[in-house]
Design a binder for these strands. Structure first.
Lengths: 231, 231
DNA sequence: CTGCCCGCTGAGACGTCCCTCAGGTGGCGG
DNA sequence: CCGCCACCTGAGGGACGTCTCAGCGGGCAG
C-alpha cells in the first residue's frame, strides 16, 4: 500500500499505545495516517486542510479536543471530525455536535466500530450527504450509529429500547397507539401479546431520566404514547 | 404528507397484514407506497421503472421473489431491491446478491431495522455509492448491515464474532497475530489477557462450519490466524 | 521417539436483554 | 366519593453473549 493512495487521516491522541494501534490499523485499511500527541500540534496540522478526516481525542493535555474543534471551525476548516471520548460519561457543557463534530466514538472502542464510523464519515463527506440525525430539543438520535445523546451525555439503550425511542421520535408530538408500536418495533406477527410496550416505556423513561430527561415520554391515557410536546 | 413528495416504494408481499404494516409505517416516514400481493403484479408495476426502491418478499405464490428479481434485471430494470426472506434459513441455489439484490432483511424484522436498511439503500442509490461488501469466495460480509452470508445462507454471528471475522477478512490471506486481533477487536488497553482470541476463533469456526464453510480460518502455529488461502 | 508447549474445547460464572406475571396506583367516569 | 380500569413497576426466569479456567491433544523440536 503506497502513501498518497488512500484517504488522509489525522489521529490526535496523547496515549502512545492508542496512537500506535490506530496508526497500524488504519494503514492496514489503506489509509494514510498522520499522528499528533497534543492540541497545538493537532491544530497546526489540521489547519493545512490536507486531511480527509480527523480522529480527535477529547482528553488532551493543554488544549482539549473540544477547543481544538472549536478553533478549527472558527477558522473555517470544514474537515470532518470524529470525537473520541473517555470511557465515563464525559460530561461537558459544549455539545460536540453543535461545535461541528461529525461523530462520536466512546472508549474503550472496538477498532471495527471506530472503522465503521470513520468509513461512514468519509463516505458522507465524499458524497455530500448529511448525517441522519433526529433532534428533539436537547435529545439527539443518530440513526446511523444507533446512539442517543441528551445534553451531550450518552444515553445507553438496548436495541429494543432504541427501536422504541426511534419510532416515537420519527413522529414526535403525535400519539402512537400501543398496537402501532408493537407492529413497528416488535414485528408484524405478534398475536395478542402482553404489556411489553408498557414495560419498555418504563425502561426508556428510567434511562432517559437518568440522563436528565424527565417527562419526555408522555402517556395519553386510553390512546397511547407521545414523545415531546403536542403539535 | 402529500403524495408525490417522497421516495416511491413498491412493497411486494402476499400477507395482507405485512403489507398493511409496511404501508402505514413507510407512509409515516414520508414515503409513497404502492403495494402488490403477487409476483406477476409486482413485475408489471416494477417494469414501469417509476420506483426508487422495491421491498420484495421471497416467498410469493406463483412467482418467487428470486424470479421476479431475475426477470427485472434481465429487462434492464436497475431499481434497488431489498429482499425479505422468511424466518428460517431459506436455503436457495441462487445467490440473491448475485442476482442483483441490494440488501436482505430477515423475518421477523423490526420495522426500525428494515427502515434503516431501506434508507441506506435509497441513500446509496441517490449518491451512486457502491455497497460496502467484502467477498471471499462464497463468503460475503456486509460491513454496513454487519451481516455475513455463505452460499446465500445467513450466518448469525454475535457482535464480537463478527468483529473478529471482519478484521480477519480485511486482510484475507495474510496472517494476523493474536496480539493484533486483540488490539483491533477488543480494544487498546487490554493488559496481558487470557486465551479469548482462541475461544472466539473456535466459536467462529463452529458457526461457519454449520453454514458449510470449513477450513476457512486456518491456524498458523506460532504466528496467528489467517482467513482463506495464502496470498 | 518423546516431551513440551501451543492451540483447542467443554464447563461454568456472570452480566445483560427480553419478556411475563402479579400486584399496586392513580385518573376518570359515574 | 367510589370503583373500575388503564397504566406502572418490581420480581423473576430464560436465553444469549462474553470471558475465564482447566484439561486434553497434537505438532514439532530435540
Amino acid at each position: 500500500m503506497l502513501a498518497g493512495m488512500g484517504p488522509q487521516i489525522l489521529v490526535v491522541d496523547d496515549e502512545p499505545g492508542v496512537r500506535k494501534a490506530l496508526d497500524r490499523g488504519l494503514r492496514a485499511e489503506g489509509m494514510d495516517v498522520t499522528v499528533a500527541a497534543d492540541g497545538p500540534t493537532a491544530l497546526r496540522l489540521a489547519r493545512t486542510g490536507s486531511f480527509d478526516a480527523i480522529l480527535l481525542d477529547i482528553m488532551l493535555p493543554g488544549l482539549s479536543g473540544y477547543r481544538v474543534l472549536e478553533e478549527l471551525r472558527a477558522d473555517g476548516v470544514a474537515t470532518p471530525v470524529l470525537l473520541v471520548s473517555a470511557k465515563d460519561g464525559e460530561v461537558d457543557q459544549a455539545d460536540g455536535l453543535d461545535l461541528g463534530a461529525d461523530g462520536y466514538v466512546v472508549k474503550p472502542f472496538s477498532f471495527v466500530v471506530l472503522l465503521a464510523q470513520l468509513r461512514a464519515t468519509l463516505r458522507r463527506a465524499a458524497t455530500g450527504t448529511a448525517r441522519d440525525l433526529i433532534r428533539i430539543g436537547p435529545l439527539t438520535i443518530d440513526r446511523e450509529a444507533r446512539t442517543v445523546r441528551y445534553d451531550d451525555a450518552d444515553v445507553p439503550l438496548s436495541p429494543r429500547e432504541y427501536a422504541l425511542l426511534e419510532v416515537l421520535a420519527t413522529r414526535a408530538g403525535t400519539v402512537r397507539t400501543k398496537q402501532e408500536l408493537l407492529n413497528e418495533v416488535w414485528g408484524d406477527e405478534w398475536a395478542a401479546t402482553r404489556n411489553v410496550v408498557e414495560v419498555y416505556i418504563g425502561y426508556l423513561r428510567r434511562k432517559l431520566s437518568a440522563a436528565g430527561a424527565d417527562g419526555l415520554v408522555r402517556t395519553v391515557r386510553g390512546h397511547g404514547y407521545q414523545l415531546g410536546d403536542p403539535l
